[in-house]
């Protein structure tokens, strides 16, 4: 398979993503929800800052606090990743698609790349405005992009969002069903993981869950409980991605369409 042919398949996958209504809506919703909730939470934090215990005030992380809304935006991007993959199975286009591109690896890589590039672009145009708006909403407690580690944490926010989408594509490729993919991942990201992380007996394990590890990337002030930092958090997140994406590929290769 030549490079030109692979490029053609990537182009085809992008057309496929672009030509269903859910794509523009979900990407727009990611932007609106993420920016909106980041700013809203930042305002709320600013209002309650003076009532925080001094210990918390000393350890206040303006970047992490300003990115609270990523927790909501990630769910929409996650759904985008899931639908990109499972849409093929629910609609039956998977047979037309694989009859056109029988090399499963090329097909899978092109689909992953088109979804991940779209997620990265949306993350970039969402996370950076989020940062500036949330920091000005934090007012006196905010920080600037030139401060130590702040740019790194903001780029980390883009990577985190992108990797959530990519992880979701891997899970969806394993399960081949939007319902089961979302039923597993949304509670995991929304409740289960934060809950487990707050149970001290489980924290040593829970800190390695994808969102707990991944959000280390957006910290400037270390969390203090997790053994992971921004760099190691990214590595754990990449490992989760590699595992689900490889699983998805093996399912696609082995099973009949």
């Amino acid at each position: 398979m030549s490079a030109a042919m692979s490029a053609a398949v990537l182009r085809s996958e992008w057309t496929k993503a672009r030509t269903v209504r859910s794509t523009p809506w979900l990407l727009l919703a990611t932007f609106v929800v993420t920016v909106g909730s980041n700013v809203a939470f930042a305002f709320a934090v600013r209002g309650s800052f003076d009532r925080m215990p001094p210990q918390e005030q000393r350890n206040f992380d303006p970047v992490y606090s300003g990115f609270t809304g990523l927790g909501f935006g990630q769910i929409i991007l996650l759904a985008f990743g899931v639908l990109l993959v499972t849409g093929e199975y629910t609609s039956g286009t998977i047979r037309a698609s694989l009859a056109a591109v029988p090399q499963r690896g090329v097909f899978y890589l092109a689909k992953w790349l088109s979804g991940t590039l779209a997620a990265f672009a949306v993350s970039a145009v969402t996370v950076f405005p989020s940062f500036f708006l949330a920091q000005s909403a934090l007012g006196p407690h905010g920080t600037t992009i030139t401060d130590d580690g702040v740019l790194r944490a903001t780029v980390g926010g883009c990577l985190y969002m992108t990797l959530v989408c990519s992880f979701a594509m891997g899970v969806a490729a394993i399960l081949r069903s939007s319902v089961s993919s979302l039923i597993i991942m949304i509670p995991l990201f929304f409740f289960v993981s934060p809950m487990l992380n707050n149970v001290s007996a489980l924290q040593p394990v829970a800190q390695f869950l994808p969102d707990q590890a991944g959000t280390r990337m957006i910290e400037v002030v270390p969390d203090g409980e997790s053994v992971l930092g921004p760099g190691t958090g990214l590595l754990v997140m990449l490992a989760w991605n590699a595992a689900t994406l490889l699983g998805g590929y093996l399912v696609l290769r082995r099973r009949d369409a």
């Binding site: 053609a8 057309t15 496929k16 269903v20 609609s91 698609s97």
Partner: peptide, 27 residues
């Protein structure tokens, strides 16, 4: 070229969109 069972297309995609992505994949 094959016609498999009916409905191997996404209900939200236009006829042209469906054919376009198939065409692009095979240049």
């Amino acid at each position: 070229g094959a016609l498999l069972e009916a409905k191997a297309f996404h209900s939200g995609r236009t006829a042209r969109g469906h054919l376009r992505y198939l065409a692009q994949s095979n240049r």
